[in-house]
Amino acid sequence: MAEKKTNRRDFLFTATYAVGAVGVGATVWPMIDQMNPDASVKALASTEVDVSSVNPGKTITVLWRGKPVFIRRRTDEEIAEARAVKLEELKHPEKDEDRALNPEWLVMLGVCTHLGCVPLDQKGDYNGWFCPCHGSHYDTSGRIRKGPAPTNMEIPKYEFVNANTIKIG
């Protein structure tokens, strides 16, 4: 055929495909979205933690949304060490002041940003954390210094409800 003329049938085909595609999409989406976190999982969004028994130099680990959260009461040396680091030396530059608003307390997700293992406390080349899975070293501010992890350990949303209680989430 030298010339293709658009006729009523072509229009009907296109319209049918278009409606069909929308229908398939609308049917498939619930099947995909059902795998996302459900309402009961989302409802567990915040946890309150009593930190009155945590002495300087100690870390407690609490579970928040199924993940460990490290709450470390840092010593003065650790704070000084974390704050003395120049930003140029960091793979993922973040000031310690921004990560620990109250310098004594470091609250962060205890999840290695490489592949999700739980790093070990007070280990590694930077006196912070060391991930045993694939060898990532974090400093006393939980910032990545060496190894395959791409970013610093994440700081969750948290606040001090009072002097002894931290609310995470």
């Binding site: 995909i32 795998m35 996302n36 976190p37 459900d38 999982v41 949304r65 199924g66």
Partner: peptide, 11 residues
């Protein structure tokens, strides 16, 4: 989405 939550869990 794979986890159905914020960590590997029952879902």
């Amino acid at each position: 989405w794979l986890w159905g939550g914020y960590s590997v869990d029952n879902p």
